[in-house]
Amino acid sequence: MIPGQFVYHRPSSVAEAVGLLASLGEEARPLAGGHSLIPMMKLRMASPEHLVDLGGLADLKGVREEAGSIVIGATTTQAELIKSDLLANRLPIIRETALLIADPQIRTKGTIGGNVANGDPGNDMPGVMQCLAADYVLTSPAGERVVAARDFYQGAYFTALEAGELLTALRVPVPPAGHGFAYEKLKRKVGDYATAAAAVILTMNGGTVATCSIALTNVAPTPLFAEAASRLVVGTSLDAATVKAAAEAAKAIADPATDGRGTAEYRREMAGVMVARALAKAESRAKGT
């Protein structure tokens, strides 16, 4: 449980950081909260020769509203997300999710950028960002490009992020006021990754679902946007048969592995149960009940 040797860099601007990452190449890793990377280094499952600490980059912190979107700086910690009034009002699902990540100590260090960029299928925010149709801003010495969260994840720990690129911000479209939301996470204990989890954002028009978006966490090598399940519930009153069908559609795209949390079969079934429960909670919130 002792990391190997590495060179520590602490750039003072984003330009300097991406310059370092680009010039050092594959042997360099950006360091944000460190709660994924440092344990991997201690286990010698990762042995980067260079760590580029993002802690000195004030530009990467903070939550602000910008033209109908919320922009979240990559090194904003989970604790800061929880404290943000802006998020609590506009994107309460982010606060609800952050409260289910790890424990208070880790949330004080762990960042949203690290959570979404690492490509760990166990992380909670990637699924939520897919649910919210968020965009990620990727910065390199060549400039910025934007990749949708729904297109970002390629496999466990494989993402669209290229060597020398840094995820610097998340842009999240704000759902209409009064939308329903829920992040339902089944886990063994505080601090655990999800056995299965589901994020739901929906709007209601009278007794009918007007829009709906569903995504899943930790039931496949990547987060999953459950497109078919989302579409199934639009235009319905979320009757029992519809909820069951949505759960089945979500289970159909799930591809979990057997692990300490349960068998693949169990975890797939739980993806369905979480979807059903998240839909019920989101509906109840949308109706203000």
Partner: peptide, 24 residues
């Protein structure tokens, strides 16, 4: 403490080995 059929020990860390916190 669990083993797979090859005798690999499974989950020998506090991520998997269940130590309840005050919450549980």
């Amino acid at each position: 403490i669990k083993y797979d059929e090859m005798g690999n020990v499974q989950g020998a860390s506090f991520m998997d080995f269940f130590l309840p916190t005050a919450v549980e």
